[in-house]
Every structure is written in structure tokens, then in C-alpha cells.
């Protein structure tokens, strides 16, 4: 009985939702990447194009890291240290992400080869679009209430 419980799949039910959100986020990122690059090129030339590309990539990658970190942390679902590992990985990933983001902002601010205004606008567009994708995916998701529960097996005859 104990062996059966230990072998049961304890992966949380959130994995498919997070995977779908990452996939749709990537699709929408491609669309916004093209739109912001074209608009940036029209209004600000090559620096605008690069600003649009980098801004969109920053928004989508940094917004996606949260879902990716939850997916990574869920791999430890069967571990005894799951709760600690989960919040350690998710929150540790979060703070690392913001440190990298601030460093990127400081470094790219004075770069001559991109347009900071286009970068900012495409970053805002990317962040908002990724929020829209997240909300739509969650709203359309079907998360069972009880799938993490292991139902008791019928007693065997012997």
C-alpha cells in the first residue's frame, strides 16, 4: 500500500495550463515582434527596429520566466522538500529575473544603436499582451478540483 502511494503521480494539475500559456505567449510574442519591429523601423529607422525587437523579447521572456519556474519547480513534486523547493525556485527565479532586468535597463539605456522610446513602448505592449494571453488561457482552462487526490483502492480479496 505504501509503495503504491509513493509511486503515485503527485505532479500538480497546473502543469498543462502553464505549458499552454507559455506556448500561446510564444505565438503572440512572434506577432508583436513583427509589428513592433516594422513600426519601429518606419518611425525610427534601424535603431527603432532593434528597439522594438529587444523590447518585445525582454517583455515576453521576463513574463514567461514565472510560468517556466513553476513548471521547473513542479518537477520536484514527489520530493519531501517540495514546498520549500517550490517557493525557493519560484521566488528565487523572480528576484534573479528582476536583477537581470534592472541591469539590462541600465546597460541598454545609453546604447547608441537602439531607440529607447520604441523599446519602452514595445516592452509595454509585450507585457500587456502576455497578461491578456495569461488571463485567456486561465479562463479557458479546465482544472479539476480533486485530481491530486489519490482515491483509496478497493480492498483486495486476499
Amino acid at each position: 500500500m505504501n509503495d503504491a502511494r509513493a509511486e503515485a503521480d503527485r505532479t500538480p494539475t497546473s502543469n498543462p495550463v502553464l505549458r499552454r500559456a507559455l506556448a500561446w505567449g510564444a505565438v503572440l510574442a512572434g506577432v508583436i515582434l513583427v509589428v513592433s519591429a516594422v513600426l519601429g523601423f518606419v518611425f525610427a529607422g534601424v535603431p527603432g527596429l532593434l528597439g522594438g525587437l529587444i523590447g518585445t523579447l525582454m517583455a515576453v521572456v521576463f513574463m514567461g520566466i514565472t510560468a517556466a519556474s513553476i513548471l521547473a519547480a513542479n518537477r520536484f513534486a514527489s520530493s519531501d522538500l517540495f514546498v520549500g523547493a517550490f517557493f525557493g525556485i519560484v521566488l528565487g527565479g523572480w528576484i534573479l529575473k528582476f536583477i537581470v532586468f534592472i541591469v539590462l535597463v541600465v546597460v541598454l539605456r545609453d546604447a547608441e544603436w537602439l531607440n529607447p522610446t520604441v523599446l519602452f513602448l514595445s516592452l509595454v505592449a509585450g507585457v500587456l499582451a502576455s497578461l491578456v494571453v495569461d488571463v485567456l488561457v486561465v479562463a479557458k482552462s479546465r482544472l479539476p478540483y480533486v485530481s491530486d487526490v489519490e482515491l483509496p483502492k478497493a480492498p483486495s480479496e486476499d
Binding site: S14, L18, N74, D134, L143, D148
Partner: peptide, 10 residues
């Protein structure tokens, strides 16, 4: 836990 993770993430 699964449902709450999704709500936490959003």
C-alpha cells in the same frame, strides 16, 4: 495545490 498555483501565477 494545482489550482492555487495557477491563481498564484496569474
Amino acid at each position: 495545490a494545482g489550482r492555487l498555483q495557477v491563481l498564484m501565477w496569474i
